[in-house]
Amino acid sequence: MEHTNEKFLIRLSGVTKTFPVASGIFHALNNMTLDIPRGQLMAITGKSGSGKSTLLNIISGIDKPTHGSVVVDGVRIDTLSESELASWRGINIGVVFQFFQLLPTLTIAENVMLPMDFCNRYPAKERRPRALALLQHVGIGDQADKLPSALSGGQQQRAAIARALANDPPVLMADEPTGNLDSQTSTAIFELFAGLARLGKTVIIVTHERDFASYFENTMAMADGKMVTELSHA
């Protein structure tokens, strides 16, 4: 898939996402229109149930909107099949989870190599050197051949970031990436994300951490499935 040079990497138009619940229909996202520019470190904040994780899922193709369209880097992803979405996501979106979600039976390097394997990116011989380089970049190059359980929480999250970068995606998404880390480690992780944004990656982070507001170029607050603070598109 070709990357475009449009100013806005991600464009949501009239996106609604509903879920059936016992009491009726729950609107997780309510007619949301949003444009996210390239190369920004951006935060999405809001209370539990405000719709921020759903928004992340919609942008990453993990979930599909009930109504509306989602265009990422020129590709309308809400019309793609599950299979097309999987390979699109593997190449275009790097996801970082709150609980790291490293696969426990693979070493750290192998965890990083796995997305390359699934998306058949980079020749097989280049995958390990690339994984080691990414691990070096996030500061845990010496931990490459250890199993995840042998690493601290902060090291595991760095490994997860390296894995998210495996296929060199233009977008990185993280849902509460420091929710399970101490403040010192959290700072290091946010600095890492800021560095990646400086390198041209669009980094979208769902967070409650007010202490790290200075890292973000843009912050969007959500409530009841709607954006309550407009993004600045400077």
Binding site: S60, I62, E82, S83, A86, S87, R89, G90, I91, V95, F97, Q101, L103, L114, P115, F118, C119, R163, A166, N167
Partner: peptide, 16 residues
């Protein structure tokens, strides 16, 4: 199941 979710997030398709 969560690992499957993670792998799919990383780019694995259902067939793989």
């Amino acid at each position: 199941v969560r690992q499957i979710g993670v792998m799919k997030t990383l780019g694995a398709n259902s067939r793989q």
